[in-house]
Deep mutational scan, measured.
Amino acid sequence: IGSLMYASIFGNVSAIIQRLYSGTARYHTQMLRVREFIRFHQIPNPLRQRLEEYFQHAWSYTNGIDMNAVLKGFPECLQADICLHLNRSLLQHCKPFRGATKGCLRALAMKFKTTHAPPGDTLVHAGDLLTALYFISRGSIEILRGDVVVAILGKNDIFGEPLNLYARPGKSNGDVRALTYCDLHKIHRDDLLEVLDMYPEFSDHFWSSLEITFNLRDTNMIPGSPGSTELEGGFSRQRKRKLSFRRRTDKDTEQPGEVSALGPGRAGAGPSSRGRPGGPWGESPSSGPSSPESSEDEGPGRSSSPLRLVPFSSPRPPGEPPGGEPLMEDCEKSSDTCNPLSGAFSGVSNIFSFWGDSRGRQYQELPRCPAPTPSLLNIPLSSPGRRPRGDVESRLDALQRQLNRLETRLSADMATVLQLLQRQMTLVPPAYSAVTTPGPGPTSTSPLLPVSPLPTLTLDSLSQVSQFMACEELPPGAPELPQEGPTRRLSLPGQLGALTSQPLHRHGSDPG
């Protein structure tokens, strides 16, 4: 009997000691992992102490058991019943959930998450997105703005933001810190809205009876308010094209079509300037034949640059190039080494500058006005007194259609001029006259002087055409309008007829 009692007592005591040691061994194993994590990542002392304290409290609170892992091991129907039991206190005593059906309560219970916070733990920081609604079931918390405590909340209090009033989550206007050990039930806004969409009859009752104890939403960050730039940057990543407008005076608003859609830094370009900076079609017209890549860069430059609305530039004389043409100036200075066709295309550029300027006046029909002061630039669209967005969009579309028509007509005119030049060069190729044979009589004449090349004649003739079109064909006081194609086609051969009437002889060394 004594040996039996000794064996039973010894066996029970050893089993008890073994169970104690097993729990202690698990605790030390998990604690060792936490300390190894702290050492590996070199976490500083204040945060390291918070980690160790939280682990110790969580171990004593749950005995080292992962409740979520245990809950996920059950089937979904059983999980709903378990969640309904775990959140029964909240669902029974909170006013917004009263009167809900059994199915609605089960769906809500599945969406709730339980959070346990030790003292000093910050649940929400200032500036964080308010993605959830919090219900306090135990403990107390404090809300701070800077170093000032603005509120202390306790059991059955609710904090967050009214989700039904805002389409997008706002930002917190303060820090939420736990004063004691707290148990909180939180539900994400997407989950709550999903359940309320499934039960629309409960939705009206819920929003009407929901009383948020403390609204954390920062009202200064609401979209459309003066301080909402940061919020707009976070939620409006896919922005449309940006529009900046110059201020319109009362006198300017009476004149229709007073602005032109141009790229940034293009205030001095012609009315047909689009795409790359520098001139019509993204580059100076005089350098068009020598740089074919300008047409390839036109599309990307047009689509990537934001639109700006600026006044037209001052008018340019008909014979003056659009500006920024070092290529043609070098050719004029060193005409001995340049291609003979460069002079002809220089005359073509003069005609283009004249036609572009006159067509700009035809479509816009307003006098040039000086540029406004820099303080009046970049007025935002949302400022008071601005035109409605639809009106601005319609004006932009009208300007775009005008620019497209202008570009089409300029292309047709350019093709006409090039065809005339090619026809003239085919009839009378460039050549130098040879020395004529002296006559049989004693009164022999001296050799004839060489005839100037055709490109120079073409430049003079085209300059005469531009001056003739600019000065004589337009009646005084009438708006400057571009001439039609047949009129220009008839004027060019008439001007060139006198020049080509002389018999030109080919030089023996000319390969053409």
Rank of each mutant, 00 (worst) to 15 (best):
S208N: 15
D330R: 07
A167N: 04
P226T: 10
S304A: 12
T500R: 11
A478Y: 15
K186Y: 08
G324I: 09
L459F: 12
E296C: 11
E296S: 12
E365W: 03
D336V: 08
S137Q: 08
I379P: 01
L193V: 09
D204V: 13
P453T: 09
Q422M: 11
G257T: 09
F202T: 05
S509W: 04
L499M: 09
G347P: 04
S260H: 10
P503M: 08
W207M: 05
A151L: 02
Y181A: 09
A132T: 06
H505A: 12
T249R: 09
R189G: 03
G234Q: 09
L192I: 07
E258I: 09
D460H: 06
I222M: 04
K171V: 08
H185D: 03
S394W: 15
R409S: 08
D510S: 11
D197F: 08
T456Y: 05
L341A: 13
A167K: 07
L376V: 06
G299V: 13
F245G: 11
P447K: 15
L406G: 02
D252C: 06
L196I: 07
T458M: 12
P306N: 15
L454N: 15
P322V: 15
L474E: 13
P438D: 10
D510M: 05
G227Q: 11
F235A: 12
N173R: 10
D128E: 14
Q422Y: 09
A434S: 09
V150N: 01
T253C: 15
P200K: 04
L130I: 13
L492R: 12
V428W: 14
P429A: 15
P380W: 01
N220R: 14
T500N: 05
W207E: 03
G270C: 13
R189C: 08
R239L: 11
L130C: 06
S375G: 11
D397K: 05
S286P: 14
T249I: 12
L341T: 15
S463A: 11
L381Q: 15
L403V: 07
D190N: 12
T249G: 09
S463M: 11
R246P: 14
L165D: 10
D190G: 07
P285V: 10
S286K: 11
V348W: 13
T219C: 14
T180M: 03
P264I: 13
S225K: 09
P264W: 06
L130K: 01
L216I: 03
G323I: 12
H507E: 13
E473H: 12
L481E: 06
L406M: 05
V348R: 07
I351W: 06
A371L: 09
V348C: 09
L496D: 08
P476N: 08
R387N: 12
D397N: 05
E254I: 12
S509C: 05
S358G: 08
G441M: 07
R423Y: 05
E298G: 11
P455Q: 10
L481G: 11
P442N: 10
P482G: 12
S463D: 11
V451G: 07
S244I: 11
G257S: 11
S290E: 14
L309P: 10
D510E: 08
M328R: 14
E473M: 11
P200C: 02
L163N: 04
A261F: 10
G270L: 11
P372H: 09
P326L: 12
G494D: 07
V195H: 03
G154Q: 10
D191V: 03
P311Y: 12
D330L: 14
P326R: 12
S349D: 15
D197P: 02
G441L: 11
R241V: 11
N215K: 02
P511Y: 10
T500F: 09
R389M: 05
I187V: 08
S137Y: 11
S244E: 09
E142V: 05
P318I: 15
G477T: 08
P372W: 07
Q422S: 08
S501H: 13
P388C: 06
N164K: 08
T373Q: 10
K186P: 03
P429R: 09
R248D: 12
S375W: 05
D128K: 03
L184Y: 10
E230P: 13
P264Y: 09
I136V: 09
L327Y: 05
D413N: 07
I152V: 12
S346L: 06
R368H: 12
L454E: 11
S466I: 08
L129G: 04
T373P: 14
P453E: 08
A415I: 05
K155Q: 14
L243N: 08
R359Q: 05
S444M: 10
L153E: 01
S411Y: 05
Q419I: 03
S260P: 11
N378R: 14
P453I: 07
L327F: 09
P264S: 10
L459Y: 14
R423T: 10
R316G: 15
T456R: 10
R405W: 05
L179E: 02
C338V: 14
T253F: 13
Q424G: 07
R308A: 06
S446V: 12
D250Q: 06
S509L: 08
Q464S: 08
P317Y: 05
G154R: 07
G270D: 13
V435G: 11
P317K: 11
A261R: 09
P380G: 11
R389Q: 04
S140L: 06
L396K: 04
K155E: 06
G441Q: 15
S304L: 11
D413S: 05
A431I: 12
E161F: 02
D357F: 07
L231P: 13
G174S: 12
Q467D: 14
